[in-house]
């Protein structure tokens, strides 16, 4: 029987995305610890990667994942991030098993599926696994675009079902 086309053609993403890992090796510099693992540009390739790697909750404390548009490094200094900021979702330790992994997956799917109305303002997302407080940050390109940034924050809260406030930090302030 003929295989239906949708099983033959991989579903292309609007953008190519890179998965980064931050290793937290004390003997290395911060930049040496930040490693671009691979990049992907189809839904199928994303899932193949996702099934292949550890979940955030399985990472050692001090490690990060970042998913950024290919060509943007997950650091303030990158030209695409300099004028930008991040929406920050804090997760207590007890949420590590209940919320961390599903929030992270939902955020990544929002990114790669271009589900933000102002998706061109999106640079990427970072998940920090830390002793007390895990953090998921969604990085945007230009903090002067207030409506775009607010819409991105609203969509995040809606998708993740967060009722309280979430904070937005300008990178230059965090610097």
């Amino acid at each position: 029987a003929e295989v239906p086309p949708e099983f033959l053609i991989k579903h292309p993403l609007q953008n190519t995305w890179s998965l980064w890992f931050y290793d937290n090796d004390r003997n290395k510099t911060w930049e040496q610890n930040l490693i671009e693992l691979t990049s992907f540009d189809t839904v199928e390739d994303f899932w193949r990667l996702y099934h292949h790697i550890k979940l955030p909750s399985e990472l050692r404390q001090g490690h990060d994942y970042a998913v950024f548009k290919h060509g943007i490094r997950p650091m303030w200094e990158d030209d695409a991030n300099k004028m930008g900021g991040r929406w920050l979702i804090n997760l207590e330790k007890k949420q590590r098993n209940s919320d961390l992994d599903r929030f992270w997956l939902d955020v990544v799917l929002l990114l790669i599926g271009e589900n933000f109305e102002y998706s061109e303002e999106i640079c990427g997302a970072v998940v920090n696994v830390r002793p007390k407080l895990d953090k998921i940050g969604v990085w945007t390109a230009d903090t002067s675009k207030q409506q775009a940034n607010l819409e991105i924050g609203r969509k995040l809260k809606e998708q993740l079902g967060i009722h309280g406030k979430i904070g937005f930090q300008l990178h230059r302030d965090t610097m």
């Binding site: 599926g113 271009e114 589900n115």
Partner: peptide, 18 residues
């Protein structure tokens, strides 16, 4: 311009495709 958008549910449906 146009943009390739995938809903979460659609991407989830491809989670185990070969």
């Amino acid at each position: 311009g146009t943009r390739i958008v995938y809903e979460r549910s659609f991407m989830m449906s491809l989670r185990h495709s070969p």
